[in-house]
Nucleic acid binder design. Structure first.
Lengths: 209, 209
DNA sequence: CGAAAATACGAGCAATTACTCGTATTTTTA
DNA sequence: TAAAAATACGAGTAATTGCTCGTATTTTCG
């Protein structure tokens, strides 16, 4: 077995891939506007210019749409900012590091409002929770690795908690970031960085104590 | 007109008040478990041991239930912690002030999971948003007043933003607080206070600059 | 007491919605 | 080119759900 968890179906056409992308684009808009429960599969199909039957040709059910969309976000997040989130930033001063990490992350979130809509919803089924885990892990794991490099002496448990709190802290401020007008955004970003910087600064100082 | 925005109906019986309280208790549980959209009015009625007809005798529709529940939370929040959130805490050292404010607030949130469930849901109708505003205002206004007293020289606009960010910061960490086991809670609370303390400390230091 | 009002019930309606299925069209492939 | 497979359609269905309404019981009050 090299790479086949797929059924013995014949082949997916380029047309199909295009439709899937269109359906996910549509789902992104509808989820962002209405949330998961509020979104209608018929509305997603219509938004994509497709029929319900076509939608269900590619997705087993509504949850599968959200799962696929989440997977696409994770993929894009890795592709776009894997480098910016690289471990080498750990050697930079804290405020520079925060610029490097947060600027692209904020840009990504503002450019992909559906990502936030899906991630923020706390009332998701177990399957969806599983699909969301990698999205959380992308941020958490990298930050944890960075902290490990930046504060060697700290016990791993404490470090994990610091990373977890920092990620939640950012996610908690996301509503503010998402709601900010283009005009207010710089000031909001400044505050976000100030909050994260102050927290991490304290956590790292404790590690050296 | 002294106090009557009510219809010329005859009188609400004690039995009715009791039923309303039971229905709100039930709604709290169902909303906390399923979210607003996921909750069913029939399920709320059943949870309260009442029939749908009885539910709709006291509430115009599903939204009205959430509005009344939110109002009850605001009332309880004010009653339970109005004093702890009193302006005099502004004269205390920052970390003591945070203990005084956050400990009862965290206890309230953990004791009223429906409050968090309703507040956190971003996909609410305009009516619900209006009902939620006072809940936000309770925390924001008091913190803003405290900051005014603690940092006189700061321009109001900057102060408002600090208060807004601080409130969002706390709300953002609420998922962590709500999900923590009784065992983990103290450590989580420590981190929350550290984060808020570090942020506010920086903001207040800037004000004195 | 007795009438009116408040409370209570729950079957069921109208609307919504996730999803199916029979059928038609386009693309692949042998 | 012809059969098979993939894609597409959209009316229809079964289930869910917010809410109503006719009716029955309890409480209030003159």
């Amino acid at each position: 077995m090299t790479e086949d968890t797929e059924k013995p179906s014949r082949k997916r056409q380029a047309r199909g891939e295009k439709r899937i992308a269109e359906l996910l684009d549509a789902a992104e808009r509808v989820f962002a506007a209405k949330g998961f429960k509020g979104a209608t599969t018929n509305a997603i199909a219509a938004e994509a210019g497709a029929s319900p039957g076509t939608l269900y040709q590619f997705f087993k059910n509504k949850e599968a749409i959200a799962e696929a969309l989440t997977a696409r976000y994770v993929e894009r997040l890795r592709a776009a900012h894997g480098e910016a989130f690289d471990l080498s930033v750990a050697d930079l001063p804290l405020n520079v590091m925060l610029d490097r990490i947060l600027d692209p992350l904020i840009a990504f979130d503002r450019a992909n409002p559906g990502f936030y809509a899906l991630l923020a919803d706390p009332h998701t089924s177990p399957d969806l929770v599983g699909a969301k885990r990698p999205a959380q892990a992308v941020m958490f794991d990298r930050l944890d690795a960075i902290l490990e490099r930046k504060a060697h002496g700290q016990p791993p448990e404490q470090r994990r908690r610091t990373a977890e709190v920092a990620v939640h802290l950012f996610r908690g401020l996301l509503p503010l970031i998402m709601a900010a007008s283009e005009e207010d955004l710089p000031a909001v970003i400044t505050e976000v960085k100030r909050a994260l910087g102050a927290y991490l600064d304290g956590a790292l100082a404790d590690a050296d104590r």
